[in-house]
Amino acid sequence: MSALATRKKLLMALSTSSVITLKINGEKHTLPVDHRTTLLDALRERLDLTGTKKGCDQGQCGACTVLLDGRRGVACLQLAVAAEGREITTVEGLADGERLHPVQQAFLDLDGFQCGYCTPGQICSAIGAIEEHAAGWPSAVTDDVRPEAGPPPLSADEIRERMSGNLCRCGAYNSIVQAVARAAGAASGTDPVPGASVHGVTDSKETVA
């Protein structure tokens, strides 16, 4: 270890704050933080990235879901200082210019929300869930988790289980399940999954209206 690095470590040990650089949506932000600052508070209160929402602030509601190195996680239990060096993606970083991310578009097309407060977390979580499924990850409702059984179809039950870390107090769950199914189908080039049209609600809101 270099003398400089050793000195930096000792200083950090004594100090209760640090100057950190966070890489968010491809952009670097350098800021001093009290070590107690969560990534959620750094995003919202320090960097004006208020798309990520604060719900319970104790890891139970999923409103603050972001992507950390491409995987979904909750920003309220992630210390900002410990997020240094990681690729952070928030809802603000999903669209490609004016073109929405397919999951954003699906939520919009299928009314996957009512008040919208949980939506940024739902969307980030859905992106992570769809990628986990595409990578062959089983879930708690997967009948046979052995790799020989192959990946489970992304049924409504699978989507509900995989999205259970995101609460929606408006109860827009039926539309959320449909939106996730449609986005997953678009990502894999297949039709929306059978069974994702739940409780007699058809897949397309346009035809219902």
């Binding site: 979904r72 239990l77 992570g128 999205m163 870390g165």
Partner: peptide
Amino acid sequence: ASGQLRNM
């Protein structure tokens, strides 16, 4: 837990 928490 949830997918988010399992990733952390």
